[in-house]
Design a protein around this nucleic acid. Sequence first.
DNA 1: TCAATATTGTTGCAAGTGCAATGATATCGA
DNA 2: TCGATATCATTGCACTTGCAACAATATTGA
Lengths: 175, 175
Amino acid sequence: MPTRFHLSAFLPYRLAVLSERISRRISVEYDRSHGLSVAEWRVLVHLSRCGAVSVRDIHDCVNLEKSRVSRAVARLEQDGLVSKTPVDGDGRLVAISLTATGRAALDEIVPNARTIEKTLRDSVSPEDLDTFFRVMEQWHAVLDRDPVAKPRSRMDLDGVEGPATPGPRDADGMR
Amino acid sequence: MPTRFHLSAFLPYRLAVLSERISRRISVEYDRSHGLSVAEWRVLVHLSRCGAVSVRDIHDCVNLEKSRVSRAVARLEQDGLVSKTPVDGDGRLVAISLTATGRAALDEIVPNARTIEKTLRDSVSPEDLDTFFRVMEQWHAVLDRDPVAKPRSRMDLDGVEGPATPGPRDADGMR
DNA sequence: TCAATATTGTTGCAAGTGCAATGATATCGA
DNA sequence: TCGATATCATTGCACTTGCAACAATATTGA
């Protein structure tokens, strides 16, 4: 039997293609207007919810390698969108927070992002959307059982559609 | 109104996280055993179906930038998994095809990839899976209507679950 | 026919990325 | 108390990536 394998019917490939297409469409909104990368966008969005947090916290919450977070934060600080202040009580930590400029940038971008997402959500029935998310969660669960797969990040486990409180750590997101 | 935006509830982000997690799990199979990248994996798989094809054809079919294809093919040739031969009749084209070694590599990897995909597919009901794919297609359709979004690639349009014939171009995939 | 245009594949370059190593600081345990 | 270990953020390095420019070849249209 020859190895016949149709890439376009391969689930992981299909998911990657759609995901990348949507991500790219969204990135137009924050790249074109503010020159942001995916990493920078995720950092900004996380900060808008969680206030002053550490690199480690961002790394935990937004599925980015910690070096990627570190560099994204450095670029954002360079551009004046975030500020870093040392944390007293723990000399290793850095508290990263939005500046007024950063918040203004988000206020410009977020409505557009929301609009695109709404268009996608509205294009299918609520039941189908529920099913879609249920399947996604099911596949995450499959991967959770797979010792070879990368573990799921904290916020993706307990944060989805959940309360606005940061999670198991301290309320301010540090420590 | 403050810009409150929950990344973990943001559709594009959720999709990206799941997609990347699954892709990484699959990549373990071809990276660990043969040191392949995503691009190289996609090229190999495409070749296994479509025989001798051009860089342009691969670019069209597997959602990879043409320079990425060109470099992936160069690496694969270096490793002896594919061969490049000039096309007589058109001096610009190169016919890329699997070598015996390349086919052997695929024969090792593909069953594992299939197994993982099957585990995912089997973890949800056929109806839910249908719905999932229907929603994916619907979102592609939304993006198809969006002038800012990147157009869908040819094979993703007409090739899904379709016949084994290469598509609108010549049967050998060249020209 | 042949100049203008298009297509194909590759490459230069700047920027981004993952991984491991590093230095600095905190915490733990005898 | 204090050495061993853990945690945090950054950095070095090799590698990948996207984009634009490029050379080579084909195609087109007057």
